[in-house]
Every structure is written in C-alpha cells, then in structure tokens.
Amino acid sequence: MRTRLLAATLTAFAAVSLAACSSSGSGTTAAGSTASGTPTASTAATTPAATAASTPATGDTAAATPGTPTTPAAGASDGPAPGAATPGAPDAPNTQAPSKPAPPADAGLPTKPGSDVTAKLVAALDAIDPAIVGGKSDQAVDRARTQCQSMYQFPKDRTKLVELANQRFTAPDHPQGFGDEKAGKILDALRATLCPPA
C-alpha cells in the first residue's frame, strides 16, 4: 500500500517536473525565435512597442530628430507682432528745425556812403591822427567799410578788431598801424559815423 502510494507520488512529481520543463522551454523559444528563424508571437508583440518608444510621434517637435530644424508653430513669424512699435521708428514726423542759412559774403558791409557821411568819417579819423586818411578819403572809406564788416562778424572780440584795424589803417610812416590805443579810437569813430548799429 505504501509502495503504491509512493510510486503514485513519484509519478505525479515527474509529470509536474516535465510539464515545468516543457513550459520553460517553450517560453525560451517564445522569447527568442523558432528553429525556422520566424519571430514568435511574443517577439512580434514586443517589437512595435520598442519601435514606438524609439521613434518620436509625428508632429512632436520636442522629440524631433537631432539636427532637424523644428517648424515654428502656426501663426508665428520672425517679425514684430501686429500693432507693436518698430524699434527706432519715430513716434512723430521729423520736427528738427531747419539749419540756419549761412550769412551772405557781404553781411555787415555798409553801402558806400554819400558825401556827408564821408565828410563826418574823415573828420573823425583826422581828429585821431591826420595821417590815418593822409588826403586819400576814398581809400580811408574803403578801409572803414571793410573794418565795419569785421566788427559785424566779431562783435565781442575787441582784441581781434584792434588787431585788424592796425593791419588795415596804415601809412608810410606807420606800416604796422597806429597802435592799439589809436586803433581802438578808430573803432569808436567808425561806429559813430559809418558802421550800422549792432
């Protein structure tokens, strides 16, 4: 009785072991390939999943293939948004004041005086030193007119005007002019008689 029970137990154990070995072998075959090299159902089932994991979904710009430029979203552009102010664009029309035109070449040059003004000018210069006119009233008037133009151009630079008067009003005995003191008096005489008021 015991022997039969033991034999039955051993037989059942052997059957379970064979079934387990058979199941393990078929699992290995399912994970690998059959003898003919055809993929098993298990392999076929896992391949699409692996392929899907390694291939980015269509339209997914975040998982785009490296080196491939991404396409900007619809409606996006490189320019400024509509209604946005363009950098550097003026807000209003150019309101810069026009440049001041250059004065004419004869600015400050008085017209040639009449006989009465000429007589006053000569009398004023003779009062400073008769050698300034030296009997040449026309020459003295021309020099005076040119000096008036310099006085118009440099109204506040008395030192320069005195220097110019010494260069213009000369005489054989005074080739370097009549000195700063008399040159200053010449300027005052011209302002009083010939030069237009500043």
Rank of each mutant, 00 (worst) to 15 (best):
A8Q: 11
T9K: 12
F13K: 00
F13W: 03
F13H: 10
L18F: 07
A19E: 00
A19M: 09
A19L: 04
A20D: 03
A30Y: 07
A31K: 12
A31T: 13
A35I: 01
A41K: 00
T55G: 10
T55M: 01
T55L: 03
P56H: 12
A57K: 15
A63Y: 12
G67W: 00
G67P: 05
T68Y: 13
P69L: 09
T70V: 09
A74I: 07
G75H: 04
G75D: 15
A76L: 04
S77K: 06
G88E: 02
A89C: 14
D91F: 04
P93M: 07
T95K: 08
P101D: 01
P101E: 00
P101T: 04
A102Q: 02
P103L: 06
D106F: 01
G108F: 10
T111R: 12
P113S: 01
P113L: 05
D116A: 09
V117K: 00
T118L: 11
K120T: 01
K120Y: 04
L121G: 11
A124N: 11
A124T: 08
A124R: 05
D129T: 13
G135C: 05
S137H: 12
D138E: 12
D142K: 00
A144W: 05
Q149K: 00
S150H: 11
Y152M: 08
Q153E: 14
R158Q: 11
L164M: 04
F169M: 11
T170E: 14
D173M: 10
D173R: 04
H174D: 15
Q176M: 10
Q176P: 15
F178C: 07
K182H: 07
A183N: 09
A183G: 11
R191E: 07
R191N: 11
R191G: 13
L194Y: 03
P197Q: 14
P197R: 15
